[in-house]
Structure formats: C-alpha cells, structure tokens
Nucleic acid binder design. Structure first.
Lengths: 344, 344
DNA sequence: ATCGAGAATGACAGCGCTGTCAAACCCTAA
DNA sequence: TTAGGGTTTGACAGCGCTGTCATTCTCGAT
C-alpha cells in the first residue's frame, strides 16, 4: 500500500505484464488468461490503483461524464432524479454533472438550442438526461441530435416518439386512484386540473374521466376545476367545490399534492372533517403529503428509478446500440388517512 | 465556423503562432503582446474553439472538477447549495460533481474517512465542499487533509477552526428574531429546540436566551421544549406548550420551519388563532413557510450564497493561497403573517 | 511431427494540452 | 554603438491511458 497514486505502468511492472494487458483486465476486455487476470487484479488491489479519468478520457475520447440538464422549478423532483442518476453512474464508473439551464425564453426554439449547444460545447459529455419540461423541447432535442450526443428524455409528454425515454403512465395512475375512490363508495368526485401547459395535466384528467366513465358515473362540469399545480389554486378550487356546505362532492382528486394540501386546508377551515366528510387525494407523493394532517393519499412516482434508468440506458454497455425505446416505470398508489374510510 | 471540434493546434496554425502562445492567451497568462492576444482570441472565436477538459486536466494534473459531498436529509438545502456552487463553477470554468455519501455509521470516524477516501480516489477533484453534518466530521476532514485536497466547510458548528468555511451567524439570527418578537410586545415566549445532535440547535437556543436576558425576560423551563427538527416533534411540543388553553405563551419560536408548521397545525386544531392569539415563527425559510396559512415569519439563510462562496474560495485564482478564513454571510429576517400584529 | 487458427500478449504512437527551458526580440543606459 | 535586462515566443517532452497492429503462444487436427 504505497502512498502515492499508482499508475497502470506501476501495476504492469509489478505484475510482470504489459500496460496493455493491465488495461484489458481493468476494462473487462476479453482474451486475457484467467491467471493473468487474477494476478493483475491482485496487484491493482494491493496498490489501490484507480484509473485517471482524464487520461482515460483523453485516450478513448470519452468523458465518463453524464449531464443532467434541467430547468425545473421543483428542487424536490430534480433531487430525486439526481439521486437515481448518481447511483447508476457509480455503478458504471461514470459521474454526473448537473447543468441547470436558464432558458432565455420559453418558446424560442433556436435560442434554447443555442444555450444547450454552448453548454455541451464546454464540457463534452457521453450522454445527456433531459428532465421535463426540457424533454418536450424540440429545439433542445434537435441540438442534441445535431451534436450526436446520446440523450434520454424523462417523462416526455408526446407518446411514442422514437427517442429513448423513461416515463410513467399518468393516465393509468389517475385511473387507478379514481377507481380506488369509487371502490370506497364515492359517487360524486370533484377533480382539480393542473397547469394547462404541463403535459401531465391532460393525462391525469384523462385517467380520471376514464375511470368515471367505466363506472358509469357522471363527471359534472362544475365539479372539475382548473388549477395550476399551486397550493393557492388548490385553495381556490376547493372554495368553489365546497361552497355549498350541505351538498358537495364526497371526494376531491387534486392533480398534485400542493393543490390537495390547499383542499385540506380549506376543508379544515370550513369545519369539514377529512376523510369522514370528504376524501382528498393528491398526486406525486411530495414530502408535504406526509407532513399534512391527515396524511395525503397520493400517487408515488418512480422518480428515483427514472433517473437511474436514464443513466443506465445511456452508459450500460450491455444495453448499448439497442433501438430507442420508451420505458414505462411502475408507479404506486399510496393510501393514507386523507382518503380512507375506516368504517367499512 | 467549421463543423468539427477545433484544437489548439488548429488555432495556432491559423493565427500563425505556436501552440504554447495560444495556450497562454487562453489561460490569461502574462507576457503576451496585445496584438498577438487579440489575433488569437479572434481566431479562437471564429473556430468556436473550446478546450478539451480531459487534455487540460491530464497535462496540468488538475481536473477542473469540484465535488459537493453531502449526507443531508434535506434535499431542499442541498439543492440551494448546489445551485450556488454550480453558478460559481461556471464563472470560473469548473464543473460541479455532487457526491452523496451514505455514511456507514455515524460516529465511526475511521470508516467515514475511508468512504471519503475511496470516493475521491476514483475521481480526483480540485476541491471539495462539505455540507453539514459532514462539515463537523473530524474523520472526513482528516482524510481530506491527508489527501491534500483543498476543501471548504459549509456551516460548521465549531467556531474558528483554522479551516476555510462559510457560515451564517445562527446566534445573531435567533437573537434578532427574538428581539422582533419582544418588540411586538411579547413577554412570554415558548421555544422549541432542534435536534440535539445538530450544531445549529445550541446556537439558535443561545441567541434566544441572549435576547430574552437582554430584555430582562424570564425563560421558563417548561416553555422550552426539546424537538428534533421534525414536523411531528413540533406538534408534540406545541401540544405541551398549548395544553393550558387559557394560559400559554403568546408567541412560540420554533428552531425550524417544519416544527413551526407543527405548531400552526396544532393551534388551528385547538382553535387558537394565529397570529392574533399566538405568534409563531420558524427558521430556514423553507418552501413550506409560504405554503402554510398563515405564512411563516422565519429566517432566510444565505444558502445559495454559501454554495457560491465555497466554490469561489476553492477555485478563484485571485483568492488562492490566502490564509484559511471563516466567512460569515448575511441572513435575513422574513416577516410574514404568522407573527405580525397588525393592530399596533 | 506439423500446420494453422485463434487466443494471449506486447510495442508503440498519440489523444490535446501544459510545463520547462531555451531562443529571439526589444528597449534602455552607457 | 553595444551590453544587459526584461519581454515575447516557440520547441519539445510528456501527463496516463487506449487503439492498432504485430508478435508470440497454445492446442486440436492432420
């Protein structure tokens, strides 16, 4: 166990083989005798050898870096993606470089593309992960294609598109949540929509309508309120939904947790007991969901897993050169007190 | 504007100078004639030249990478540090690599050190940022010193310690918050302490006691409750503090926002109106503070700035080789409805 | 015993840049 | 005019690794 950084040359010398052979062993290349492999490995371990990324990169013109490009107001979401991505990177000997983007102007495709181009020009990476809403930006995607940098889209809204992507089935999740509510005996269910420009908004609403239609339940238009994913908009929607104290929906399904929190807070102010008099559920399973009283029934997205899979698609050599595919990851219904009727 | 990646050689050839001169210009080294500098810069811009980090790193044995090492349950805090750190990195041509740490066992210095050693062995970085509680781990710090990797501590608890550090004055912040409460006319103020093992806990409490003492107000021991920074512990503390409906403190100062949120929720359940019958304030200015009703009066920490400064200390050449110093950054009292008496 | 195909190994150049050091140049003082 | 000092520039090696291609070895088939 020497003090200083060991190089391949050191290992080669001590193991009595050539540098190239050491390189082969360390990179799991074929055509190395088992015995040689063992010896090299032993010496490397003894020397605590670890490769110099810069040298590797220079020689192989790879960077062993993956960029996580985001422009997302939700630090929570990004943090989870990042956690998954980092774990995957570690598994494959890569490193993650987060690249927040200040998009100059939403809608201006060309300038978005230019921003990305500039970013990746400085730091050449082996792959890029695009989080929503960037995963829906044609400008950014085009720039990436032009630079021939492999990329994976996280939760893009367009259905099949020929790119590598990981997402979850928002429609199905909303459907199952609604079915759960229906199974609990609810017949009149209020729905709060999300921000009109966010792609999940339409999908979640679609799932809700599906389930209602399947159960032959009517969706009353005055019981569907437009929100924008903010707590405030949840409050406003709840006030509309609950204005008539004696006749209001017996359940409210908000398109995200923040809005559901708004509903709970209004209900509490109006003296409507949750869940006895009103079931509430949200979507996303943010930390808020567990902090609230009562705790929120919600949908847990596989955010961590999306990050993990995105990196895996990018760097796993066994996955390499597979055709692009959109992968759906499993969500989970998390049933908590806000929508649980105990007496059943 | 060629299509492919330009190298220094290309620039040198076209500008009619040697590679070394180009290198000098690009790195702002002295002793280059103004005319030469201009010409090189022009050619570089025309070619859209950008240096190959790997090659630079290999030749100069620097990595142009800074690691953000954390083991912090609060994604929000990390995200802000990270944002500041990334912005600073961009300014100086560096990149940030987040390295979450799964500390094997709190308290076991040696294994912590080993974990860090292993981590940085794989990816040699030019500097490390340690966030709390890692910034208080002697094992980790020792490992870094032994590896001769420059590092900056974020919000370490030990006062002056001879290391580079950025922090804020928790004592002063708690003091000012308490003074604000006192100025509002409160004489009986409850306090909820944070997690006993977190360094901020003692400091915030100290600030509170200071201010109370200065105002010649008594701190009743039954009005100081031990919490642990969780919402749940805030609820418990509030229940104790508010048990006697007719005689309870007129204000409660919780050591963080989560616990303050717990207080608000208990008050609302007990029918105690905030802030009319009870002022509540928190600490940290988390997103929660604005979501709650009423919004929380709290202390905004310069988290982003800490991240920014940490990187600056590490990589700014003009700051280099300065003696280690602990830098205090400015906090901000954010007064919102939860502790504002309008009728005054 | 001999041949040859494939497995195992090694020599060597070179990835794009910077550090070192020597060369060339410019100006001022005598 | 020339010497001497600083300024500006360039030649070249080499950072630690991998890709290419040549060489050597191994062993079953003949």
């Amino acid at each position: 166990m020497r003090a200083m950084k060991a190089t391949i040359t050191d290992v080669a010398k001590i193991a009595g083989v050539s540098m190239k052979t050491v390189s082969r062993v360390l990179n799991n290349e074929p055509n190395v005798a088992a015995k040689t492999r063992e010896k090299v490995l032993a010496v490397a371990a003894d020397l605590r050898y670890s490769p110099n990324l810069a040298a590797k990169g220079l020689a192989s013109s790879k960077s062993y870096l993956v960029a996580l490009v985001y422009d997302n107001p939700s630090p929570y979401y990004i943090a989870k993606i990042q956690a998954g991505a980092i774990d995957a990177c570690r598994k494959f000997g890569y490193h993650l470089v987060p690249e927040p983007l200040q998009l100059p102007d939403v809608g201006d495709e060309e300038s978005q593309a230019e921003t990305v181009r500039h970013l990746l020009h400085r730091l050449p990476v082996d792959g890029v992960i695009l989080t929503p809403p960037l995963s829906d930006s044609p400008g950014v995607i085009k720039a990436l294609e032009a630079m021939k940098i492999p990329f994976v889209l996280i939760a893009p809204s367009g259905r099949e598109n020929g790119f590598n992507a990981v997402k979850m089935d928002d429609i199905q999740a909303a459907r199952e949540m609604t079915e759960f509510l229906i199974a609990q005996g609810h017949k009149s269910i209020g729905f709060i929509k999300g921000h009109p420009e966010h792609s999940a908004t339409a999908l979640r609403y679609e799932g809700f309508r599906d389930a209602m239609a399947n159960a032959r339940l009517t969706v009353h238009s005055h019981e569907v309120i437009q929100g924008d994913f903010s707590f405030r908009s949840g409050v406003n929607a709840a006030e509309a939904l609950l204005s008539d104290k004696d006749s209001h929906p017996s359940a409210i399904f908000a398109s995200n947790d923040d809005m559901a929190a708004g509903v709970v807070s209004v209900a509490s102010r109006l003296g409507i007991i949750v869940p006895d008099e009103l079931s509430v559920c949200g979507f996303d399973d943010t930390p808020l969901a567990k902090i609230l009283f009562p705790q929120l029934t919600t949908v847990q997205q596989p955010i961590y897993e999306m990050g993990f899979h995105a990196v895996k698609t990018l760097v796993d050599p066994t996955q390499k050169s597979k055709p692009a595919e959109t992968r759906n990851l499993e969500f989970k219904l998390v049933v908590r007190d806000s929508a649980l009727i105990q007496s059943r």
